[in-house]
Simulated assay, not measured.
Amino acid sequence: MWDFSFWNAYKGSYYSSLVVTLQLSILAILFATLLGVIIYWMKTSRFGIGPFRPLRWIAVVFIEVIRCVPMLLLLLLVYSGSKLLLGIDFTTFQAAVVAIVMNSSVYIAEIVRAGIEGVDKAQIEAARSLGLNKVQTMRFITMPQAIKNILPAIGNEFVSVIKGSSMASVLGVAEVLFTAKMVTGATFLPFTPLAVAAIFYFVLTFPLGRLMLFIERRCKQSDLRERTL
């Protein structure tokens, strides 16, 4: 059962796939954060033609559609449909990044919304009464406090993205799970190559999860100190 005789022959492949997983996850979370902020801005935008709010409706439709489509199906749709519908021939890696960004961005948009709406409304009203305009209030009052709520949640979403990147193996992206399945097929060992992949994911996600808990506790302690002053 615990036969690791394959390790010396395939450790290079595992390490290479680890780099691919990190590249995929980091790119995905960066672009998903940017897209999530844009989606939040669109959803809260007051731009409209009469009672019709086109930006808000586009954001709402995008969020609801992506939420209802399974991640695995979204990967296949992006990879197969990009050429057919848009004339863009994505590589498997690019398609995986796009699909993960689309999936993660809707959750980040809600994280941003919850972080901003979690700021005490009385502070915003006080800032406006002191003469700060909407942009200044957002910059100096709302965002510094909202970021304390947003950062830990973004970190947890990064953990989810790392784990979700394993689905890119269905497209043939040479990330950790794809390598584990390749080793399984080459060595006819059904368990240990997958166990090694699980260890790699654990090494990636566990420290990050602990770091997010530490940051969250520090943010809560900072809030308590500010309230007691």
Rank of each mutant, 00 (worst) to 15 (best):
W7V: 13
I58K: 04
D120K: 08
A99H: 04
P54G: 03
F90E: 03
N8D: 13
Y10T: 03
A96S: 15
D3I: 00
A186I: 00
S45P: 10
S45A: 06
S222T: 09
S129F: 01
S104M: 11
T91I: 01
T91N: 05
V37L: 15
L35M: 10
L75W: 01
L77G: 06
Q123A: 02
G12A: 10
L75N: 07
F6I: 00
L171T: 07
W2N: 10
N156G: 12
G81L: 04
I111C: 06
A109I: 04
S169T: 12
N149W: 08
R56W: 13
N103F: 10
Q221H: 07
A186Q: 14
G12E: 11
R46Q: 15
F158K: 03
A197E: 08
L224F: 08
R139F: 12
V97P: 07
Q136G: 00
S5M: 01
M102C: 13
G155K: 14
E117Y: 06
M143V: 09
C219R: 03
V170S: 03
R210A: 11
G115A: 10
G81Y: 03
I63G: 10
S105P: 08
K83V: 11
A9N: 09
L213M: 14
I162K: 05
Q94M: 09
A186D: 08
I154S: 04
A126R: 10
A126N: 05
F200T: 11
K163E: 01
G115V: 07
E117L: 15
V119N: 11
M1L: 13
F90P: 12
R217T: 11
L24R: 05
A95M: 03
V196L: 15
L77A: 09
V159F: 06
L208M: 09
S222D: 14
L73M: 07
E226Y: 10
K11W: 01
S166R: 04
V173F: 06
M138G: 05
W7A: 11
V61A: 06
G87F: 02
R53K: 15
K43T: 00
F47K: 13
G172V: 01
M143F: 13
A153S: 14
L151T: 12
I39M: 10
V135I: 15
